[in-house]
Simulated scan of single mutants.
Amino acid sequence: MSGTILTALRARMLAVGTIGLRAVFPPLCIACDTEMGSESGLCPACWAETEFARGTSCDSCGVPLPGASDGQTLRCDDCLVHPRLWDQGRTVMLYSGTGRQLVLALKHGDRLDLVPPLARWLAQAAAPLLGPDTVIAPIPLHRWRLIRRRYNQAALLSRALARLGGHAHCADLFTRLRATPRQKGLTRPERQTNLEGAIAISAKRAALIDGRPLLIVDDVMTSGATLSAATRAAREAGASRVCVVTLARVAKAP
């Protein structure tokens, strides 16, 4: 039997198997488990509760902005008052409603099944920031927090994002030099102080980004202190351009 026929038979068997599997376990909404017509999606109700960052957006953090850009580079009020160290930034959605639910499910609920669909959303948001030589790397967790959580959600997302576009990925580009208190509840100055000297480039990985563009991936951006610390370290290591993409941004809808 020829290879072409075998390939066709294999594809047919997989298709039949998938149909049978769906008959027993129909696709569900990734947020509420409502039965769906397609996999890895949101039901209409959850979609309506998700504030996606579409249309006109801030060029530094990706938060949606009212009106049209007319080709101009726009920034939100927060990024105008607090200029970012990185070159450009994008986000998938606002940290509210279904978006917040999905982030927390991935971060604290062991919902690793969310990584593929969320990575596809990240790929759409990050498309304007990616070039053929871009290296993708996640914000790191300190080793003790990684032991407790068992995985770094930013690393899972960045790896899946890199695979989708065929980009170089370095999960351990950054390292946490010391454990820091949680950022939740801290003011902007306190967040910045909390992260001073806490993030560095791994000495064995520094050459990977010397003279190359870098995309940093994180799950949530609030004040931007963590991304700023990572950007500073990347620039000191010689990155030619630093961009960021996050799954969600803490901000008000326009």
Rank of each mutant, 00 (worst) to 15 (best):
A239I: 01
E236K: 06
D113G: 14
T226C: 06
E196P: 05
T231Y: 06
K184W: 11
A155D: 15
R143M: 15
G166N: 14
L214Q: 09
N194M: 00
G211Q: 10
G165L: 00
A123P: 03
P140K: 09
P181I: 11
G224T: 01
P128K: 12
L156M: 09
V135K: 01
I147T: 14
I209W: 05
S240R: 07
C170V: 14
R178D: 11
T180Q: 10
Q124H: 10
F174N: 05
S228A: 14
K184T: 15
L130S: 04
R241I: 00
V244H: 00
V220T: 02
L130H: 05
E236R: 07
P181G: 12
A237I: 04
G185W: 13
L156N: 04
R178E: 11
L208H: 08
H167F: 13
E196Y: 12
A127D: 13
A119F: 12
T226D: 05
R149S: 12
I201E: 04
I139E: 06
L164A: 12
Y151L: 13
L156K: 03
R232I: 09
R148C: 07
R163E: 15
I209K: 10
T226V: 07
G165T: 00
A171C: 03
A154L: 05
A233I: 09
R205A: 08
G165H: 00
R111A: 02
N152F: 03
E190Q: 15
A137C: 11
R149G: 07
L122G: 09
A168I: 13
G131N: 08
W121R: 11
R150P: 02
A207S: 14
A234G: 12
G197Q: 08
Q124K: 09
G131M: 07
T175L: 11
L114V: 09
V115L: 00
G165D: 00
R191K: 11
R111L: 02
I147C: 10
F174T: 05
V115R: 00
A137T: 03
A207D: 14
R235G: 07
R149W: 13
L112C: 03
H169G: 08
L146N: 10
R143L: 15
H142G: 14
L130P: 03
L141Y: 05
R150N: 03
T175W: 08
P138R: 08
R111C: 01
P117A: 06
I199S: 05
A230C: 10
T134F: 01
L114A: 10
R145W: 09
L164D: 08
A200Q: 11
T222N: 06
N194L: 01
R178V: 13
N152P: 06
I136N: 00
Q124D: 12
G224P: 01
P140G: 12
A125N: 02
A200I: 04
L114M: 11
P213V: 02
L112N: 03
I147A: 15
A179F: 02
D172S: 05
L146V: 15
I199M: 11
A206F: 10
S240M: 08
A155L: 14
R241T: 00
C243R: 08
R111H: 02
I139F: 08
A234E: 06
R148G: 05
D110G: 02
S228M: 05
A230N: 04
A154N: 09
D113N: 13
A203W: 05
D172E: 11
A160G: 06
Q192W: 09
R178M: 15
A203D: 08
T134S: 06
R191C: 06
A200M: 07
R159F: 03
S240E: 07
V135H: 01
